[in-house]
Design a protein around this nucleic acid. Structure first.
Lengths: 336, 336
DNA sequence: TGGAAAAGGTAAAACGTTTTACCACCAATA
DNA sequence: TATTGGTGGTAAAACGTTTTACCTTTTCCA
């Protein structure tokens, strides 16, 4: 078994040239290095016939780059991140790059560990949905000169590329829609994470209320603990609906909160679209399929992935000075 | 910027020992190699203080393994695969391994390409939901001596580890349930892929029918083209319901077919649980949240991931001869 | 006709580890 | 007093590439 895997040395021997020559040919430097047509063809033939593939590890060691992009997210099994991951994967693959990913569970400690691990693997670029507290580590890869793009969540004190959505405006649109429907007692169900993105979602919400002249006491903002299990969250929400029967509309600040929320509503006697208007962040099949269908603030995932990958490759091929870019994409309220 | 990254050489110099010594200490071979306690402590101190991390690339080049496991699935954004990926990631991480993944879109060509890519990256082990036609390539990694575990779908002619579910029995249970409800005209909506797993889902279905004495003509098996868009599939299903109004129960052979199916049913005047019983493969939030809730054949994802990782690590640490293992896990019909 | 430039190539260093072989010293033993 | 065996280490090869510096031969042109 285990037929010996070929090295550049084998190819060179077979073609009766030096490994230098083979290397030049393989890397498209043949003409520039004045290798004769005859030799080029001979070598290419052998490479093809024998199915020789250069050892990427050796190549990485020598060149210092790996053709790998590191992706760090909170949880790869979250449909939003899984969807982005898939799009990034496709786009990167077309340029000869692969993705290596990891989930952080939003822990700065794990993020640090991952960044170090990726560093030691000589990852060429980083795409990160960062946890709070990872600033130092992200700074360190930036100063290594590696391209870095943050997405989904943002670290204000960091001078770094970012692709995200206009969370403030999204929440604002949602409230506006509630008001337009004649609702006077909106609730925001959000998470107790200290993340810019989450804060913006709240700010847009309260701004919308204020503009409509709605008193703070007429509305509700519930911050669900991040570490809650789904069951705990459902209980919490049922209590909310019991204690505040006046609530006539709910905006859920994340897709998983919306799912817990819909399950909780099932357990109450409230009827969606009659007693209660609902809008969820992040569109998904689940909201289309729900009866009644649930309105959603749809993130433009394709555009997000595009913007990320474009910036990454721009920097990877940059000879010139890099410029920090912040891309804020609009969110579409899909009314159902 | 860009503070020079440390090498083992720097540590050795600082500690006034040879790099050999540092290497032994770092790899836990210090006692076995009779390094003095004093030196061990000195080196470990410096390593810690300077935050030195060995270059994994160099290590891989020398040792021939990478501490990376390759994961090849059809589509990482499918919740089933995303969920498995997350579980595998966690379990692998605990043993110091990372996952590198890719989606094949069920194309043998892409699978081949990926395997070659992974090979050139010296991936230590492979976890694959294989496309038909990738047999040769999978054989080649097996004969390289690398651990391989297939899951979700199976290639009969290959002598290789496999973790899967009892598809035949699952479908059989579903039909049995339909019959128990008094249904006499079940339909199976499946996909036109030539995959063992899919075939078994059909076989269990027809076996159930036969046992209940239901004529072939009373039931329906619809094979949806794999390449269909969701919209095309919905149209196809609407036609089905129109042409075969007698259908009183439907088993969907994949989660995405179920979603299309539920959307199609929305467009008809059929009422689920009254006119039509529905069971879907792969449980998910979406079925719990649907009104009415949808019964599902729940794959034991945690157990699947466990079985995969257990086998992988068993082989990675195997000194002895490897033995092929086929693990078939039971599926639970969750009636809602 | 002599010198420069172009054509066609190669040897060897380097990337940062692990690991094999070996060395020097000392104590104990026979 | 040689020999053995442990103790505490090190030098150098090897992993498979890329790349720098250099070499020889031929062609061209003034």
């Amino acid at each position: 078994m285990s037929t010996k895997v070929l090295s550049i040395r084998d190819i060179a021997a077979k073609a009766n040239v030096s490994i230098t020559t083979v290397s030049f040919i393989l890397n498209g430097k043949a003409v520039e290095r004045n290798i004769s047509k005859a030799v080029i063809e001979r070598v290419e033939e052998i490479v093809k016939a024998d199915g020789y593939k250069p050892n990427q590890i050796a190549r990485s060691l020598r060149t210092g780059n790996s053709q790998i992009i590191g992706l760090i997210v909170e949880d790869i099994s979250n449909p939003f991140f899984a969807g982005i991951a898939r799009l990034l994967e496709d786009k990167a693959y077309k340029k000869g790059y692969k993705i290596i990913y990891s989930s952080t569970e939003n822990q700065a400690g794990k993020t640090r560990e991952l960044i170090n691990l990726f560093k030691s693997r000589q990852v060429d670029a980083y795409i990160i949905a960062p946890a709070q507290g990872a600033e130092k580590d992200i700074e360190s890869i930036i100063s290594d000169g590696k391209p870095v793009v943050l997405f989904d969540r943002y670290l204000p004190e960091l001078d770094v590329n970012y692709v995200g959505i206009d969370n403030y405006d999204a929440s604002y649109q949602a409230v506006k829609h509630f008001i337009g429907e004649g609702k006077r007692h909106p609730a925001l169900v959000t998470v107790d994470l200290d993340i810019q993105q989450i804060q913006e979602r709240e700010d847009g919400f309260t701004a919308g209320l204020r503009e409509a002249g709605i008193e703070d006491t007429a509305a509700v903002v519930l911050k669900v603990p991040f570490a809650n299990t789904r069951e705990q969250t459902i209980v919490l929400l049922e209590e909310l609906f019991k204690q505040r029967p006046d609530v006539d509309s709910v905006l859920f600040a994340t897709n998983y909160l919306a799912i817990s929320g819909l399950l909780a509503i099932k357990n109450t006697n409230k009827i969606i679209n009659k007693d209660l208007s609902v809008i969820a962040y992040d569109d998904g099949d689940i909201f289309k399929l729900h009866t009644p269908q649930i309105s959603a603030l749809a993130q433009p995932v394709e555009e997000i992935a595009d913007a990320i990958i474009r910036k990454i490759f721009q920097e990877l091929s940059a000879t010139t000075e890099k410029t920090i870019e912040r891309t804020i994409l609009p969110v579409q309220l899909i009314v159902r």
